[in-house]
């Protein structure tokens, strides 16, 4: 069993990290009161932007192209999410319809542009990130082998963002204000908080994080933009709910989903796992999300004003 864990671990973590950062983005948005089901599309935008930038730059600056690509994806995600912010904050549009439109526009537009650029609609990058061992720490017995060898730099980056996000949301005035906008925007407004501004910032954070998540898929395990992230944005949404809108809950949920998906992917190769049908492992995250929603239906931790347009006149 231990052997399997060690074998599967690096893949599971590689799969978890894009989910984690995207779900964290969703956390900011929903905590401010805006439902963002456009996470999938925003990931695709980051996936595409990262691929395009790295594809163009890797010949001249092989060392830094990957990081510039990640940064570009971060910015592109934030910019693209403005479409959703504008529709749902300024125009009181139905946030679910707007999010769906984001998903569809992203999926179609990026492939359209990619075809204009490469002809095939796929953008292949030559160099992604290389797995490295953390000096010193990797020599710790057991833990060192498991956590600190063959890791991607992005994994540590995202874990740092997780910590910072937790700190910002729960330990700063900004975080308190942001959460207030998602619970009772009218009260927040009467306390002098600019609800519109807070929600704009939150949606842009969700876009930036999702964009980064999409680009991390590219530079770690995919290596090629192909127009879709295969439902990972929706999986991130499921993790957000399973984690009950809390940073540590999200970490647990994404790790769980990461392992479940990885085990399903490798179960054919590892004899001990062939007994578990793949269909169970693959549908598991979605089934468990439905079950969690039922269990917590009375005591849900969902932000109370999430999904509702802000109406100043309402009391």
């Amino acid at each position: 069993m231990w052997g399997i864990v060690v074998q599967v671990f690096p893949y599971a973590i590689a799969f978890t990290i894009p989910l984690l950062i995207t779900a964290l983005g969703g956390l900011f948005s929903e905590r401010s009161g805006i439902v963002n089901i456009g996470l999938e599309g925003l990931m695709v935008v980051g996936f595409f932007t990262g691929a395009l930038v790295i594809y163009r730059l890797e010949a001249f600056m092989p060392g830094s192209a990957v990081w510039i690509g990640l940064l570009a994806a971060f910015v592109a995600g934030a910019l693209f999410s403005l479409l959703h912010a504008f529709a749902s904050i300024n125009l009181n549009a139905n946030q679910v319809i707007s999010g769906t439109a984001i998903n569809m526009i992203a999926g179609a537009l990026t492939v359209y542009l990619a075809r204009n650029i490469t002809g095939s609609g796929n953008i292949h990058i030559v160099h992604g990130l290389v797995r490295k061992s953390v000096p010193v720490l990797s020599r710790i017995p057991i833990i060192g082998k498991l956590f600190f060898t063959h890791t991607y730099a992005t994994t540590w980056l995202i874990l740092a963002i997780l910590l910072i996000s937790w700190f910002v949301l729960y330990k700063t005035a900004f975080g308190l204000r942001l959460r207030a906008c998602g619970e009772h925007p009218q009260a927040a407004d009467s306390a002098g908080i600019n609800v519109y501004l807070m929600r704009y910032i939150a949606v842009m954070i969700s876009g930036a994080f999702a964009g980064l998540g999409g680009a991390i898929i590219l530079v770690t395990y995919s290596g090629e933009f192909n127009g879709t992230v295969g439902g990972q944005g929706f999986l991130a949404l499921a993790a957000l709910i399973f984690g009950q809108w809390k940073p540590l809950g999200i970490l647990g949920a994404t790790l769980f989903f990461g392992f479940a998906s990885t085990i399903a992917n490798v179960s054919q190769v590892i004899p001990a796992l062939t007994r578990i049908p793949g269909i169970l492992l693959k549908t598991f995250p979605y089934v468990i999300t439905l079950i969690v929603l039922v269990i917590f239906s009375k005591t849900s931790q969902a932000p109370r004003a999430s999904g509702e347009p802000y109406d100043k006149g309402k009391r």
């Binding site: 125009l91 549009a93 439109a101 569809m104 075809r115």
Partner: peptide, 24 residues
Amino acid sequence: TKIPPEIADTIIATIIYFSATSIL
């Protein structure tokens, strides 16, 4: 022409976005 076929999907997706924002 040289126009990629995804133009149709882009148009349809944009129509959804404009339907959502039609209030404005």
